[in-house]
């Protein structure tokens, strides 16, 4: 993991909590990772693993009563969690852009696409109305919307889902942020459109050297797009590493199960591997390693102590199994 100060984003021991009547729920539990400029980090995990909350916590948009209870988020060395709301607002959109899951609901139905683009551009950049309009046209062309000039005056409902997600991407990139957080950007789209959207996102971010946190549960998208991948389980990062390593030779038992559940057309196996049981609810996270009740390798230590994150190979794993055992796991997965 990169520890140097040149990192674009550095997240340290981030904890997101929801105070409820039955006590405090920890939705994100001490996660740490960093991101280099232009790097694409995939954040994967089942629904409810805390992926999206991590994304919203980073840009300070947690819905109350949710809050960042501890930990730090640093953007180019500057701590951004805990900044006054107005300061944080200036970072949102300007330095960190965000793309949400559902393009059908992300755009305000009552305003023309151009109005929403120009509004965003002018919020962050000192441009005149005419300049902002020109920039909006350029942005729409960049994301691949034909007849951009004319489409500026269209309303969101006049676009298809894929086209709307292109507009959303254009909006997220309007002020050329250094980082884009894409929360399940393709989940709500037709399969045939998904690849196009990912391609647009990938191309633009590479051109502008924008780093991306790609939140998804689609390992295919990750494999194709991300440089590194972090696997989340019950609010914790269980494994993080270069995407090739994590996919080809997962070390954590959970990651291994996750990869095993992806169908491989060339494999002869008749059944997909399943992980028994299901992810615990936030109210019932087991003591020790959160994965221990479903893990085939769990021992007494796993049931009492939380495993620390430690470097293994080019990545890091939060597991008590020793290196030899983990490597054996990864070799087994590779077969």
């Amino acid at each position: 993991m990169t520890e140097t100060s040149e990192a674009l984003l550095e997240v340290r021991d981030l904890v997101v909590e929801f105070p409820t009547r039955r006590g405090i729920l920890r939705a994100v539990d001490q996660i740490s990772f960093s991101l280099m400029p232009g790097e694409v980090l995939g954040l994967v995990g089942e629904s409810g693993a805390g992926k999206s909350l991590t994304g919203t916590a980073l840009i300070g948009l947690l819905e109350p009563p949710g809050r960042i209870a501890s930990g730090t988020v640093r953007l180019k060395g500057q701590q951004i969690n805990g900044l006054p709301p107005e300061e944080l607002r200036k970072i949102r959109g300007r330095r960190i852009g965000m793309v949400f899951q559902d393009p059908l609901t992300s755009l305000n139905p009552l305003y023309r696409v151009g109005e929403q683009l120009i509004e965003t551009i002018r919020t962050h950049l000192p441009l005149s109305e005419a300049e902002a309009r020109q920039r909006a046209v350029d942005l729409l062309m960049e994301v691949g919307i034909p007849a951009a000039e004319r489409r500026l005056d269209s309303y969101p409902h006049e676009f298809s889902g894929g086209m709307r997600q292109r507009v959303v991407i254009a909006l997220a990139l309007a002020a050329e942020p250094e980082l884009v957080i894409a929360d399940e950007p393709t989940t709500a789209l037709d399969v045939s459109v998904q690849a196009q959207i990912i391609a647009v996102l990938k191309r633009l971010c590479r051109e502008k050297n924008t780093a991306v946190i790609l939140i998804t549960h689609d390992m295919g998208v990750i494999a194709e797009t991300a440089d590194r991948v972090a696997v989340m389980y019950a609010g914790r990062i269980v494994e993080i590493g270069p995407v090739r390593d994590v996919i080809k030779s997962p070390r954590h038992p959970y990651t291994k199960g996750l990869m095993g559940s992806i169908p491989d057309p060339e494999a002869e196996a008749e059944r997909l591997i399943q992980i028994p049981g299901s992810m615990p609810r936030l109210t019932h996270i087991p003591k020790g390693c959160a994965f221990n009740p479903r893990c085939g390798f769990a021992n007494d230590q796993c049931r009492t102590e939380r495993p620390p994150v430690r470097a293994v190979g080019k990545g890091s794993v939060a597991c008590f199994l020793d290196e030899a055992q983990l490597t054996a796991l990864s070799l087994e997965a590779r077969r």
Binding site: I59, L61, R89, G97, M98
Partner: peptide, 10 residues
């Protein structure tokens, strides 16, 4: 869309 409007820094 309100969440997204906030995310755009409006």
């Amino acid at each position: 869309y309100i969440k997204f409007a906030r995310a755009r820094g409006l």
